[in-house]
Amino acid sequence: MDKYISVPFDQAVSDSLKAGDYVYLSGTVYTARDAAHKRMYEALQKGAELPLDMKDNVIYYMGPSPARTGRAIGSAGPTTASRMDKYAPALLDLGLRGMIGKGRRTREVKEAIVRNHAVYFGAVGGAGALLSRSIVSSEVIAYDDLGTEAIRRLEIRNFPVIVVVDAAGNDLYETAAAEYCRE
């Protein structure tokens, strides 16, 4: 079913989401992909502060193409989440509420999602032009030297995602494919 929710959100909201729900997100999310995750992870290991508070926030695994003049952002679809699997449990344990990406997650990440009442959303890979229309503004807030991999604060409006792994640990990638398998 289709749901409309605002981000950031708390545990009551994440617990209400079920794998397979089609959700339109509005509010604020943060982008981070490979290089930003590596840098945040190293900062945590050194006991340094992170450039953003994880509590109840949602990270979008995305590195945009450059914006044309007068536009908020360029093409802006999800990247493969599994490359962030090494780093995600540590961020979830700090209160990260949700992640937007595409592709499978490891058992460790799914356990951290359940443990922290979080959620993993899938956005449609390769639909970067369509998704860019749901992004109202974009501002680099950290790691500017990483270019497309910098951390950005995005204001989004009715950004379409699908709940892939819910707080109970259900994984849509496993159940949905089984439903249509005719081997």
Partner: peptide, 26 residues
Amino acid sequence: LGRRILNQLDENMKIAGEDQVPICQD
């Protein structure tokens, strides 16, 4: 859901042309 996604991919191609945004950010 599959049809919905495929229709979005079709829409995405149209938007890429209209907005002059690459089809995919990668």
